Amino acid sequence: MSAASPATTRPNSPRRASARERLLAAADELFYAEGVHTVGIDRIIERAGVAKASLYSCFGSKDELIRAYLEGRHEIRRSRLLAGLERHDDPRDRLIGVFDVLADMASDNGFRGCAFYNASAESAPGGVVDEVATANRAWTRGLFTELARDAGAHDPILLAEQLMVLYDGATAGARMDRRAAAAVTARGVAASLVDAAIAPTSA
């Protein structure tokens, strides 16, 4: 019997990323670092190493690539928040824990604040950025409301709105200061707000 050929003994090579995956990876890097409108499609195509036709066959337009980029950012943020909250069993700690996750994210190399805030600052109302950013904020507001309700807040909607404002400010502060201190400070303020909101009321 003849020896096996190299083709049959060589380990499987890693799967090459698809054109769609490479375009999304390039868009994620460039859009987040420089802006969704500042970066043109030619730079994304060059970074991804694909033909221009691939962008249009995969996404149809730059707007739809922006949508996919922001939806991907939302999913990563959502997964990271929910995973971080799993560290806590107590409902109060889970609510405050949102700010622990924010501090972790703000400590990442390359942190440039909220992708949705950044994209919205460049974009006119009513477009794809507005649509996806609104959905992202609705999810965050819903998370705060659910956690506030679980923690026993007397007015979970009001507490959620207060924490949203605090979260927004801490995200912007961490971006401007290039460190997580604003998120850490916001956590302490959040703890005070939560404790006041769940304190027993006098008869």
Rank of each mutant, 00 (worst) to 15 (best):
V194H: 00
T38V: 15
P11T: 05
D100K: 02
A181I: 09
A25L: 11
V50T: 00
Y117N: 11
I45H: 02
E75N: 10
E161A: 15
D104P: 09
G127A: 01
P91M: 03
A17H: 08
D155I: 10
M176H: 05
C114D: 02
R15W: 08
R20T: 11
N109G: 14
D100W: 09
Y32T: 05
A197Q: 04
L159Q: 09
S61E: 01
R20L: 02
P91Q: 11
L82D: 10
Y56R: 09
S5Q: 14
E122V: 03
P11N: 11
D63R: 10
H37K: 14
E122L: 06
D195C: 04
A148M: 06
R67L: 01
I41M: 09
D28E: 13
R15L: 06
A68V: 08
L163D: 03
A183M: 10
A203V: 13
A197W: 04
D177K: 03
R141A: 04
T134L: 15
I96D: 00
I76N: 07
R10L: 13
L158W: 09
A115Q: 09
R47Y: 10
Y117V: 12
P156R: 05
A106H: 12
L85V: 15
A51L: 12
L24I: 04
L23Y: 00
A124C: 14
R187T: 12
R178N: 13
G127Y: 02
A83D: 14
T134R: 15
R43G: 06
M1C: 07
S61A: 07
D28H: 13
A121E: 14
V98K: 00
S202F: 15
D100Y: 03
A160I: 05
D108M: 15
R141W: 08
Y32V: 04
D195N: 04
E21L: 06
A68F: 06
L85G: 05
I157A: 15
A83Q: 15
A53F: 06
S107W: 03
L102I: 01
